[in-house]
């Protein structure tokens, strides 16, 4: 039940950001589905991997592939899907708790939580980089082949 609620919230949260950034009509739905997909991947990995960092990484890889493929299918910048779909992964809660500990003067808890926030952010970043670089490589190879002919 909790999971269903989270998935629904991830969907509507992504849709909120898509609206905020002026995404229109059909793409609105696709962008929101991206957020749902990212969180679904994270949840599905739960029984297999217990640590958050690799789960965030894989979720980020999947959503980037989703974004890059969609960008080619509907012919628009991949940013549009990446930015909105990555929102549920942004460690806002963790960041808030880090700052909360900091303000309360509990520096041990603050640094532990801060490290966690940083690692999650890095996992998302690393997850985005892998597919993006691959797609770029494929494009370069295609351009190069076209030139050879």
């Amino acid at each position: 039940m909790d999971n269903v609620l989270q998935l629904a919230a991830a969907f509507s949260g992504s849709m909120g950001f898509a609206l905020l950034f002026q995404v229109r009509r059909g793409k609105l739905l696709l962008a929101s589905l991206g957020g749902l997909l990212a969180w679904a991947v994270y949840l599905a990995l739960g029984p297999v991997i217990s640590s958050d960092v690799p789960r965030f990484f894989i979720a980020s890889v999947v959503l980037t592939i989703y974004g890059e493929i969609l960008a080619r299918v509907v012919k628009c910048p991949a940013t549009l899907f990446l930015v909105t779909a990555a929102v549920p992964l942004i460690p806002g809660g963790s960041l808030y708790h880090t700052m909360r500990y900091f303000v309360e003067g509990d520096f041990a808890a603050c640094s532990a939580q801060g490290l966690n926030t940083l690692l999650l952010a890095l996992a998302i970043a690393a997850g985005m980089i892998v597919p993006t670089s691959l797609f770029q490589l494929i494009r370069r190879i295609r351009v190069w082949q076209a030139k050879k002919k």
Partner: peptide
């Protein structure tokens, strides 16, 4: 905490964060 986290997610600069990573790489 829970109320604030909702508002924090609203204000957090999501586009610059994702774009900056794409830029760097």
């Amino acid at each position: 905490d829970m109320i604030s986290i909702g508002n924090i997610m609203l204000l957090i600069p999501g586009i610059p964060l994702t774009n900056s990573l794409r830029d760097m790489f």
